[in-house]
Amino acid sequence: MKALMSVGALIGVLGLLMLIGMIFGVIPSNTVRLVEGYMPMQVLSELAVFVAGFTGLSYLANSMGVAFPRFWQGVLFWAFIQTYLKFRIYPPIPFSVRAMYGTVSFVAVFMWVSANEEDWKKFRQPILNVLDANTGFHKALRTMYLILLPLLIGGFSFLTMKPSVDEPIELRTVHPAPPASTKVHGKTYTLQTSQNPYRVNLEGKFDQAYSNKLIVEQGMGRLMAPNANPWDDKAEGYLKYVREGGEIFFQNCHFCHGDNLNGRGLHAFAFNPIPANFTDPGTIAQLQETFIFWRVAKGGIGLPNEGFPWASVMPPWEQHLTTDEIWKVILFEYWHTGYYPRTWD
């Protein structure tokens, strides 16, 4: 048991040292890399490791007779979570999310320290000591808080209410609800039921299962599926359409959406909002092909107001491409990113 706790303590100390290094910029945030594809679980695992580490430290301290006051355990752990979220995770998390996480972790720390009466008494003791101010030290502390707290609160209020020159926050809906149907080049498409005419199997029938087997593999290698090279001269049917879609993509779309379809094209950072990152699981991976068809055909100005049509520079491609070309481009996008379009059956 002691050995286990010692190992835990060691890990905890190492982790803390690294975090402090990141806070002060001594080591970069990506020292321990957030592995692409495993990042969400990695963050949770790291937090679990830290918790185990702190438990080990606390256990060791107790067994050595050094009691680490519950009050400071709670406060420091909460501070640790805040600094972890701010300095370890890259790219930086927006403040609004950190505020939400901070509130939740505050409640969690409270639940932890007040779970039973004994712990709660231990936690409260330092606070009560300062409030009671029975010793000279605590008296001084209490006076200091009396002066400091109003200053801090006042200062914080002032800073919050001070007008800033930053652009105001926009709450743009990233996935507005699509219309029930859209008319492109004189033909009306019902979004819930239309299908991509080029997602066909060897018999020429719409077959998503067939195309799903031929897409690029997800994960770090991004390898093509075996015998599924669209640029093979002998490629037929679906793969040929993917190639044609790819050609259209690289003639029209990659300038903004990037040659890796990750929204990092040449012009990407000239715009706000920047072009969509198709490799992100929150974009085309979640959407039906007809939704993409609507977006591509109608462009930014075709968005409903909640999607901020005035802010988007997505061209209405129906003015430049035929519907067949649009469907093929969509086919290519799903092939390249290795995602399956959302279906209902």
Binding site: E36, P92, S96, G282
Partner: peptide, 24 residues
Amino acid sequence: PHTIVMTPAELKAMGGQQHPVLGN
């Protein structure tokens, strides 16, 4: 949240509308 409330400065720092960790 999927749509994160953020200032444009944070948006640029994130490099896009989606955060690679939080987006998941």
